[in-house]
Each structure stands twice: as structure tokens, then as C-alpha cells.
Design a binder for these strands. Structure first.
Lengths: 335, 335
DNA sequence: CTGAAAGCGCTAACAC
DNA sequence: GTGTTAGCGCTTTCAG
């Protein structure tokens, strides 16, 4: 790597002159500036980021910790975070917690040693289940800012980006009711998560408010992975009267649709389905799944904005929670 | 952040003593070592990574540049890279080129300023189409090692991890021939990429070698995104004799299956389909798609191993290309 | 056994 | 306009 020192030697000037010249300091003569820049360009000089960061105590790097990169929601959020960060001149260091508390803790520890200026993260499932967030608060106490998105906790006082999960499910359920559906089931494989609980409550509330709704609420909480298909087939076998489904996670909506077709339901005549899946799965289904669109790109972008804002405004304002609007996207699986 | 200096002051010893004590130097008395470590632990001391890196000229960080994180193949590769790197004590900095040459170039430039020890990357589509790899070779000339995976180039002499794309498609085609299929089409939305070309050649070769195969090869190269579904529907409408499909990219296999079902093909009686999709889409189809399994996790793992090997063995051995074996996973869409 | 000092590459206050 | 110096936090040689 080319260093300032090498430039200085070749030009027979001091290191500080070179440094100032490259920053267009008006202490330096235009002539010298030009010579310095010319050589720097010629030798493809790039300031050593480590040295700059060490000196300035700013890394211009954001640590991103997501629970599961194979979940398309998080992949897309990461995509948006990377885009926006890059646009604003920040690098991102990515860690995946794999839903494990211990991995989340490790990553946080590992990066809070000067590697990053702040964090953007979504809580691991284990962390949410145990509701143990000491490690997060410890980082915040070291004055390293954190933005939480999607999976958050009341026990952490920091900037957050969420969607209105309760309302999203509430509106989706209302819509099915407005279609005249009488037996609406909710399917979830994220029953343990904050967002899962909120969405379930939204569904329950909508049913409760519906005057003429006679049946019981039916919540299908699918625990361990792999049993999704079996559980949904079982649902259709044992509950032949079902005429509406709200699937509140990323994939069960698609699976439900596929199984319903297999069981010869006419969609949407016999049965409506609304999922929370991302757009990417739409090409895999026919008819297309109606969904609650979560504007994942906006979530990622807002997270970066909140963090950078916090990093750059030393005046510590109160913490802020940004709620990204959802949108009910009606497609082929609703009337 | 707690620094060595602070520890030193509190203990009334010198900075160098503290540093040595924390590294268990046998120059330091057991007693001092204990005192130092106790205080370090108490104050939650963590060595500043920037300073260590600057001093040692090693960052223990790998730059990863992938073309598209929303493509499940790359998300999974990234997942594997992160896992393995983390296990070996390396962080990863992630950049997404979004298939753009310019973004790939920027990322490379940005991180080759001391931020990372080396790169793991897969070429952007634009880079492959233009076959312009000067920027990659420039980095290599600066003695920053790069491991290429999946999308590679003959014009770059470096360590690579690939699958035998030609053979994978060749074997898949052979299998359909062995089923007695007489009209086998190939579908691809990656016709511009090195891997796409190789797979297509494998298909063509298998057909050529088949003595009793009468029909023409039929390659459906789908260019721009969005038209996949239409193009496949059209295929079924205009080619009613098709009885076998090799889909060589991530998604067209699933779409072909879905459309075939819609057109009332009996699968696999009337029509066999083999895709290159990742396992994650399997839950979306019924019957389950037969695929060429690419062992994506192994690809990521091997990439990290090659890079770290290169980083740690200063003896510059010849460049190495590792070929990860594929496996034909027969499921419900083949006989 | 412990400490002083140099230096990784850079910036910036302060000379000259 | 240019150079000297100190220092970011750490490691490591060399002296004591």
C-alpha cells in the first residue's frame, strides 16, 4: 500500500504537507497541491482506513446483526441497509445470529471494540423468548448507538423501526370479514416472536369486534420447522368449514395456498388467503397470493437514517420509534 | 472504551507490562499477570481492533462481494461464508454489487485500503458480459488475495471454487434421456453468465451423444426479468410434445412446474422436470421438484478455507480451483 | 521481571 | 507555505 510517507519522500516535502494538500488546505500553495495530487493519483494512493479511523475515533462502519439471512425478509432488509449505508459513505459488517442468543452476544462483543460506530439489528428468537436483553443495554451504556428493527423489546430504550403489526393483521382480518367470511383461521410459525404475538392480537381483536361473527378464533401456531406442510394439511382435513386464512409469517401463506389447491378449494370463491410473504414468492404461485406488504426496503432505509442521524447529531435527542406503513395488496387469493 | 493506558495507570505499571501480561508473556510475573487480568476483566477491557490491525497489518476481516443477495443461492453462500469465517476468527464486510460493474469496482476500491485482508467474490453479471476484469487483476497485483466462487473468469488467475456446471447439466440431461424422454427443453434466465453457458453446453453435449434422440435441442433463454411466466406458458402452448425440462437457474424450474400443473400435465408421467433451485423452494411445490443440488454451503466454506489458507501461508503456492461435487436429487418431478 | 521508546499511517495544533 | 511534533491504541525490541 502507498502511504503518505512515500508520497512525501518522492516529492521531498513533509508528510503533513502531503496530508494537507490532499485535503485542499488553503495553507498549501496551489502548485504544491497539484503536484501532490498528481503523484497520489499516479500511484493510486488511498488513505489507510484503519489509520484514519483510529485517529478520528470514527470508523464509518455499521455493524448489522440479523437473525437469519435465509429468511427473505431479513435478506431484503440487509439489501436495503447495504444500499442506503453505501450511499451515505458507510460500510457494513454483517453478522448472523442464527436465532441464537449466544451468537448475538458474541457478535455484539466482537464488534464493540472499535470496529463499528453503531449497530442495526433485529433480535434473535432465543433473545426474544428469554426476553434477556442485558447485553444490548450494556452496549448502549457504552454510548454505542443501536437501531432495532422488526423484532424489538420494551426493555430496550433505543431507536426502533417497526411496522404496526397489530393493525396490519387487524386490517387483513377485517377485510376477510367484509368479504363475508365466517370461519377465519390464523396460521403462524412465529408464535414466539414479538411481531407474531402482535399480529395474532390484531386478528383476535378484529374477530371480537365483528358483531355477526359466530365461530371461535382459530390460531394454528406451528412450532418446529418441517411440520408446516403436515400441519396445514391436517387443518384442511379437520376443519372443512374454513373459508378464510390469515398467514402472518413469511411462508405459511404460500404453503396454505398450495395445499388448498391440492384439496380442490376454488380460490378465492371458497376460500380467501392473505399472507405476510414477500413479493419474491409471488412468481411461485398461481393464483397470486394476496399479502400484507411490509415495505421491507423502507424499513432498512429508515434504520440506516435513524442510526446515522444519531451518530452525527451529538445532541442526544429522545429515542424515536418509526412505524412504517403496511399496505394490503389484494391479488388473486381474495375476492 | 477502556484502553491499555487506563489499565496501566490504575495499576501503576507501564503500558507495555499490561500488554505483555494480557498475552501471558513469561517475562511478566504470575502475580502481575493475575492483577492485570483481573482489572481488565472487571473493566471489560477489549483490545481496540483498529489499533491491533494497524500495528499488525492484519485486519482479520474478509471482504465479501456478491452480485445479488436476494438470490437465494448467494444468500446461502453468504451464510456459509459468515459461519466459517466467524469460526476461524474472521469478520466479514459485505458489499452487494447488484450485478453492476461500477458497484463492484467501487466496493473493491473502497475496501482495498487496509480494511480487509482479502476478498471472496462472485462476478457481477455486467462484469461477466463485458468480460472486463482489469479491476480484479489490479487488486491481485497489490497482493491482496481474492477467491472467486461460482461466477469466475478465465482472465483472472486466482483461487476459485466452482461446481462442474457442464457435467451437472450433462448428467441431468442423461437422466431424462434414460427415462426415455424424446423432447427435452432447456430453460435458462442466466444465459449471459459463465455458469449458464457451461450448463447449456452440458445439455447440448448429452443430446448430441444420445444415439436415438431425434428432436432438435430447444434452448429457452429468457432475457429480462418479469417475462419468465409468460415465456414458459408460451413454451407449453407452442410445444405440446415436450416431455422433459432442464431448468438451469434458481427459479425457472419451479415456475415451469407450476405452469405444467396448470396445463394439466401429469407429473412425472407426462413430463419430467429437473431444476437447479435451492432446497428452500421445495416447500412451495407439490410434487417436490427434482434438482441438481449444488451444495452451496460447501461452496462458501471452501471459499473461506482457500482464502484463509492463502492469507496464512506466505509461501505463494500455485492458484487452485476447487470443484464442489453436485448431486442429482430425484424427487417428485422425475420418474 | 519491568519500563522506555519506536512505529503502524494518519491528522492537526503549533511552530518557523 | 511548509515542517515539526504529538498522539490515536497497540505491540515489540531493547535497556535496565
Amino acid at each position: 500500500m502507498v502511504t503518505l510517507k512515500q508520497l512525501a519522500e518522492q516529492l521531498s516535502v513533509s508528510v503533513s504537507t502531503v496530508s494537507k494538500a490532499l485535503h485542499n488546505s488553503d495553507e498549501i500553495s496551489p502548485d504544491t497541491i497539484e503536484r501532490v495530487k498528481a503523484l497520489a493519483k499516479f500511484l493510486n494512493y488511498k488513505p489507510n482506513k484503519l489509520a484514519v479511523s483510529l485517529k478520528s475515533s470514527k470508523t464509518n462502519t455499521i455493524g448489522v446483526i440479523i437473525p437469519n439471512i435465509l429468511n427473505h425478509f431479513f435478506a431484503k432488509a440487509l439489501y436495503a441497509i447495504e444500499m442506503e449505508a453505501s450511499k451515505q459513505g458507510y460500510d457494513i459488517i454483517t453478522c448472523v445470529s442464527n436465532e441464537k442468543f449466544s451468537k448475538e452476544l458474541d457478535s455484539l462483543q466482537l464488534l464493540s471494540n472499535g470496529s463499528v460506530d453503531g449497530f442495526i439489528m433485529s433480535l434473535a428468537e432465543e433473545t426474544q423468548v428469554a426476553n434477556d436483553v442485558e447485553h444490548i443495554n450494556a452496549i448502549l451504556q457504552q454510548n454505542i448507538p443501536i437501531v432495532l428493527f422488526d423484532r424489538v423489546s420494551d426493555k430496550i430504550n433505543t431507536d426502533k423501526v417497526i411496522i404496526d403489526d397489530f393493525d396490519a393483521a387487524y386490517q387483513a382480518t377485517k377485510y376477510l370479514l367484509s368479504e363475508g367470511r365466517k370461519h377465519i383461521a390464523l396460521i403462524s410459525d412465529i408464535d414466539e416472536l414479538s411481531v407474531g404475538k402482535l399480529r395474532t392480537n390484531g386478528y383476535l381483536e378484529a374477530l371480537k369486534e365483528a358483531g355477526n361473527y359466530k365461530s371461535e378464533a382459530l390460531v394454528i401456531a406451528i412450532k418446529k420447522e418441517g411440520s408446516i406442510e403436515g400441519r396445514i394439511e391436517q387443518l384442511f382435513k379437520t376443519n372443512t368449514s374454513i373459508d378464510g386464512i390469515i398467514a402472518i409469517d413469511n411462508i405459511t401463506g404460500v404453503v396454505a395456498l398450495q395445499k388448498a389447491l391440492k384439496f380442490n378449494y376454488k380460490i378465492p370463491q371458497d376460500l380467501s388467503i392473505i399472507g405476510f410473504s414477500d413479493e419474491n414468492v409471488l412468481q411461485f404461485t398461481d393464483p397470486k397470493l394476496s399479502t400484507v406488504s411490509q415495505h421491507t426496503l423502507d424499513i432498512g432505509k429508515a434504520s440506516v437514517e435513524l442510526l446515522i442521524n444519531r451518530l452525527q447529531n451529538k445532541t442526544s435527542r429522545d429515542t424515536e420509534t418509526k412505524t412504517i406503513k403496511t399496505k394490503l395488496q389484494l391479488r388473486g387469493t381474495t375476492k
